[in-house]
Design a protein around this nucleic acid. Structure first.
Length: 214
DNA sequence: CGCCAGGGCCTCA
DNA sequence: TGAGGCCATGGC
């Protein structure tokens, strides 16, 4: 069983859900800017809290790179408070939008994003994949948790090592990357939680974590 | 109530 | 280069 096999199993098992996804606030297709800002706001934070923050930003007319980057930091803080870590995130969002307003979305490089304060590997790749539709696989805490329990990885590998491993083992296109990531999120939320519900897990017979706990 | 959430930065070895 | 501390709100 390698990574690609698990991708196929997850795809079969969660065939009923929508996979080509980035969470949205208003049920519309999110704009590139909303995806980029949401990627920062969701750092170590539940998406429900991010939704409130994004709704507040819309109400405050903080909806363009120009308006956000020119807004007072206190106004951004007020809007995004529900997303947590709001003081840091207000700065991060402001820096990011100041960068974005000068750029055409199509000409943004991963390294440029990583150079911005507050944009790390996962946030950069989320923006690259979901906002720009570029082929970068997103490694997150869920990916590490699920695949370390399965026994495919150790879990403490550095980010780039894991990204390359996953990209090497699945088809190189953005639809596959997005779908796989969505499936990982789904499985982590439904079953492979921090406190895992192995009893109901369809992968348990292939999982080191479950086998070694018997 | 306590735990947890789709990180990232800084500091210090 | 990596472990530990810190940032903060809201749902369950």
């Amino acid at each position: 069983m390698d990574i690609h096999d698990y991708y196929n199993l997850l795809k079969e098992h969660y065939s009923h859900i929508d996979h080509n996804w980035w969470p949205t606030t208003k049920k519309f297709t999110p704009t590139q800017l909303e995806i980029a800002v949401g990627a920062v706001l969701t750092q170590n934070t539940n998406w429900r809290n991010v939704e409130k923050a994004l709704d507040n930003m819309i109400d405050a007319e903080l909806t363009t790179a120009f308006s956000i980057s020119n807004a007072r930091t206190s106004a951004i803080q007020k809007a995004i408070r529900p997303s947590g870590f709001y003081r840091q995130k207000a700065k991060r969002v402001k820096k990011l939008t100041a960068f974005l307003k000068e750029k055409n979305f199509e000409n943004i490089g991963r390294e440029e994003l990583l150079a911005l304060n507050g944009i790390g590997h996962e946030t950069a790749d989320s923006i690259m994949l979901y906002a720009l539709n570029k082929e970068y696989f997103v490694i997150d805490a869920y990916t590490r948790r699920i695949f370390s329990r399965l026994g495919v990885i150790k879990g403490d590998e550095n980010y780039e090592e894991l990204r390359e491993l996953f990209e090497k083992n699945i088809e190189k296109n953005t639809d596959t990357y997005k779908e796989f990531h969505a499936l990982i999120v789904e499985h982590a939320k439904q079953t492979c939680k921090k406190k895992p519900e192995c009893g109901s897990c369809f992968l348990k017979r292939k999982c080191n974590y479950w086998k070694s706990s018997k």
